[in-house]
Amino acid sequence: MQSISLLPNSSNVDSNTGSKSEPLRAQFWSRFALTELNHSEWEALCDGCGSCCLIKYIDEDENGNVDEELVEYTDVTCQLMDCATGYCSHYATRQEYVPDCIQLTMDNLPNMMWLPSHCAYKRLYKGQSLPSWHLLLTQDAVVTQHEMRAANVGVAGRCVSETSMSDEEMETRVINWINP
């Protein structure tokens, strides 16, 4: 499971890392390669959908390659997910609670094509544009949330926690509202 934060807060200190935030350059997502982004810009790409935190079934071939068409998402999420809001309850310290939580980086992104098709990281990596509803484009969180819901994007209100759930029960909770 992996968790990625939303846009950094507006102060000079990033609440997720405790470090000083770097400024977002104008239209950085279209002007710079992913490898050229600063930490704040990288974090700002996240749309906050929470899909990456859902438990999924990923089959790898003998070379470790994943056929993204065969990835199956469940509606079961990491124990840290607040299913009402769709946000991680302990983002900054999540690996203390969930040691195998994956930190999405430019180095591991090429091996994570199981991310949903609307994911800004995946889209930019593949040379595609941001979804029209992305906060970086709308500049309005309310509009973005409304358009994400209209596009059937996000786990808020439609996920359940992995807490006290058996592996057998999880296997019955495969969903089809996320496309890798």
Score class of each variant (00 low, 15 high):
Ile55Arg: 13
Trp29Asp: 04
Leu34Gln: 10
Ser164Asp: 15
Trp42Thr: 13
Thr163His: 09
Pro180Asn: 13
Leu115Pro: 00
Met112Glu: 08
Asn16Thr: 11
Glu60Tyr: 12
Leu130Phe: 06
Thr17His: 05
Gly50Cys: 12
Gln95Ile: 03
Pro131Met: 07
Ser10Cys: 10
Pro99Thr: 13
Glu22Trp: 07
Leu135Phe: 00
Ala26Cys: 04
Pro110His: 13
Ile178Asn: 02
Leu130Glu: 01
Pro180His: 08
Asp107Ile: 06
Asp107Thr: 11
Val13Ser: 07
Ala26His: 14
Thr172Leu: 05
Met148Leu: 00
Gln27Met: 14
Phe32Gln: 14
Ser15Ala: 10
Leu6Cys: 12
Lys56Asp: 14
Cys88Met: 03
Tyr97Ala: 15
His134Trp: 01
Val160His: 04
Asn108Asp: 06
Gly50Tyr: 09
Cys46Met: 04
Ala141Cys: 03
Thr93Trp: 01
Leu115Lys: 01
Thr105Glu: 12
Pro23Arg: 12
Met148Ala: 00
Glu169Gln: 14
His39Thr: 15
Val160Gln: 11
Asn152Ser: 04
Glu168Asp: 12
Asp47Arg: 06
Cys88Asp: 01
Cys119Met: 05
Val143His: 02
Glu36Ser: 15
Cys159Lys: 02
Thr74His: 03
Ser15Trp: 10
Val76Ser: 01
Trp177Asp: 10
Ser10Phe: 13
Asn9Gln: 11
Thr138His: 02
Ser30Thr: 11
Phe28Gln: 13
Val142Trp: 00
Val142Leu: 04
Phe28Ile: 13
Thr163Pro: 01
His134Tyr: 01
Leu6Gln: 11
Cys46Lys: 05
Asn152Gln: 05
Asp100Leu: 05
Gln145His: 07
Thr138Asn: 02
Val13Thr: 15
Cys88Val: 05
Ile178Pro: 03
Arg173Thr: 04
Ser89Trp: 00
Leu115Val: 06
Met81Lys: 00
Pro116Asn: 10
Asp140Gln: 03
Ser40Ala: 15
Met165Arg: 09
Lys56Val: 09
Ile58Met: 12
Leu54Asn: 10
Leu54Tyr: 09
Asp67Ile: 05
Leu34Ser: 07
His134Leu: 01
Tyr91Gly: 01
Ala84Arg: 08
Pro8Lys: 06
Gly50Gln: 06
Tyr91Met: 10
Val142Asp: 05
Leu115Cys: 03
Met112Phe: 08
Pro116His: 08
Ser10Arg: 14
Val143Ser: 05
Pro8Gly: 09
Thr85Glu: 09
Val155His: 04
Trp42Asp: 11
Asn108Tyr: 07
Ile102Tyr: 00
Glu72Gly: 00
Gly157Lys: 02
Leu24Gln: 06
Gln79Ala: 12
Asp14Ser: 10
Ala26Asp: 15
Phe32His: 10
Met113Arg: 08
His39Cys: 05
Ser51Gln: 04
Met106Arg: 08
